[in-house]
């Protein structure tokens, strides 16, 4: 009987923890949170079990996107330090298992969403999975430096889906929430890609810092922050939120702009000297959590 150390790990059935890792749980947390906020700010409420199911479906769909993304990008992930230890490039799982898991999870989430809430929400959920996998991962990401700009739409779906799951129709506020995440994605990802650009270059991914240079990316981050801040504050003057949200969004967006300006002014080219970029990346995650949390609090204070 061969010992475990002498055996190719891929020949073993994958550990359940590796299936969990395929779903990118940390990314999923932000997706679930934004979907939950979309659901909570809706003017009507679902029974708790249906609300829970809607959020579960959004989480499962996000997990499916993560699994299919890793199934498709196994060669790219193997070339990047940040992703080389994932189950597929590390050889702890075979590709077919990841594909079956991703497709199964995605199909199940769409079906359950349709049965539990409504089919418009299910169609939106299916569209978000297909957009992320086919448009972003397969088409845009390996081809254009604008991959994050257009691909950001995939991550912007959850609040819209959460709202539609409750109401069954579109409205101005969830479309604004969609716009906020859509415009937030480029500064968020470009801040990250600045200090891991050598990874992207090694993997042949045409991220903006690799293709257009560090200076150009820093300016783009600042310019994209301006419409993002405008979209973040917009619900207040449009009468879709109260003063609590309006003031909080203005303060949070102002800090974002200051950090983006620091990035634009930075001249460092070595990742070790990119504190401004690392601060902006960390703050951008906090920003989205805080903005959506305040919006929910504001709506509940109004009721």
């Amino acid at each position: 009987m061969p010992s475990l150390e002498m055996t190719n790990p891929a020949a073993l059935p994958a550990d359940w923890r590796d299936f969990l890792a395929l779903t990118k749980p940390r990314v999923m947390s932000l997706v679930v949170f934004s979907g939950l906020c979309g659901l909570l700010v809706a003017p009507v409420q679902l029974p708790p079990v249906l609300s829970f199911t809607a959020i579960l479906c959004i989480a499962l769909a996000a997990g499916a996107c993560g699994a299919l993304n890793q199934w498709y990008e196994v060669d790219v992930d193997a070339k990047m330090r940040r992703t080389a230890k994932r189950p597929l490039p590390a050889g702890r799982m075979d590709r077919q298992s990841a594909l079956h898991f991703g497709v199964g999870l995605g199909g199940f989430s769409v079906l359950l969403m349709g049965l539990a809430t409504n089919w418009l929400a299910a169609i939106l959920l299916a569209a978000s999975i297909l957009f992320y996998v086919l448009v972003y991962t397969v088409w845009l990401k390996p081809r254009t430096a604008q991959n994050i700009v257009i691909g950001g739409a995939a991550g912007a779906f959850p609040p819209l889906i959460g709202w539609v799951a409750v109401t069954g129709h579109f409205a101005a506020l969830p479309l604004l929430l969609f716009a906020i995440i859509f415009l937030w994605t480029p500064p968020h990802f470009w801040a990250l890609s600045l200090f891991v650009r050598s990874d992207y270059a090694a993997a042949g991914i045409p991220m903006l810092p690799v293709v257009a240079g560090v200076g150009n990316t820093r300016r783009q981050i600042f310019f994209y922050t301006l419409p993002m801040a405008a979209a973040a504050v917009a619900p207040w003057p449009l009468g879709l939120s109260g003063v609590v949200y309006g003031v909080s969004a203005a303060v949070l967006s102002f800090v974002f702009l200051v950090l983006a300006a620091r990035v634009a002014a930075n001249r460092a080219t070595e990742p070790a000297q990119m504190d401004a970029e690392k601060h902006l990346f960390a703050y951008s995650v906090f920003y989205l959590f805080a903005l959506f949390a305040v919006l929910v609090a504001d709506r509940w204070l109004a009721w």
């Binding site: 073993l12 059935p13 550990d15 359940w16």
Partner: peptide
């Protein structure tokens, strides 16, 4: 640990 033991352990955990 033997390979067979590890296969059984993983199959049980997944089941």
């Amino acid at each position: 640990m033997r390979l067979e033991d590890e296969v059984v352990r993983r199959q049980r955990a997944r089941a």
